[in-house]
Amino acid sequence: MRAILDVILVVLNLYVWVLIISAVFSWLYAFNVINGSNQVVATIGNALHQLTDPVLSRVRRYVPSFGTVDISPIVVILGIFLIQRIIAYYIYPNVM
């Protein structure tokens, strides 16, 4: 059972990194640092969008809008940190 919890913790940690990379990618795209018409860049952007949009769109329904600033990735990352701490402090020690 601890192996399953370890896998869940690793997947949550990887998803945090995907969210961070997606946010940085969107900033680079918005400020024209990277070329959006490049096929590789478009593929990476599409993959990041498909990985993050299902979760972020649900959070955006409940988080108030701050104009052009989207804080939904921060809310999701904080939620993931909360889930990781609950697993690490309450569930993991009680599982044999």
Rank of each mutant, 00 (worst) to 15 (best):
M1C: 10
R2Y: 14
I4L: 14
I4Q: 05
I4N: 12
D6C: 12
V7R: 08
I8H: 09
L9S: 10
V10P: 06
V10H: 14
V11S: 07
V11D: 09
L12Q: 05
N13F: 12
L14D: 09
V16C: 08
V18K: 00
V18P: 07
L19Y: 02
I20F: 02
I21K: 00
I21W: 00
S22V: 09
F25E: 05
F25Q: 00
S26V: 01
S26C: 04
W27A: 13
L28S: 08
Y29N: 13
A30K: 10
A30C: 09
F31T: 09
F31N: 09
N32M: 06
V33R: 11
V33Y: 12
N35G: 10
N35M: 06
N35T: 08
G36T: 06
Q39C: 01
V40G: 02
A42I: 11
A42M: 11
A42F: 09
T43I: 12
G45F: 11
N46H: 11
N46K: 13
N46Y: 10
A47S: 02
A47P: 02
L48S: 04
L48H: 00
T52Q: 03
T52M: 00
L56K: 05
S57Q: 14
R58S: 09
R58G: 12
V59E: 05
V59P: 02
R60P: 08
R60D: 04
R61Q: 13
Y62Q: 13
V63L: 05
S65I: 02
G67V: 04
T68F: 11
T68N: 15
V69C: 02
V69E: 03
V69I: 14
D70N: 05
I71K: 01
S72E: 00
P73M: 01
P73W: 00
P73S: 02
V75S: 01
V76L: 01
I77Y: 03
I77A: 00
I77R: 00
G79Q: 01
I80Q: 04
I80P: 01
F81I: 07
L82Y: 11
Q84G: 00
R85T: 12
I86V: 15
I87V: 09
A88L: 09
Y90E: 12
Y90A: 15
I91S: 06
P93F: 01
V95N: 03
M96A: 15
M96Q: 12
M96V: 11
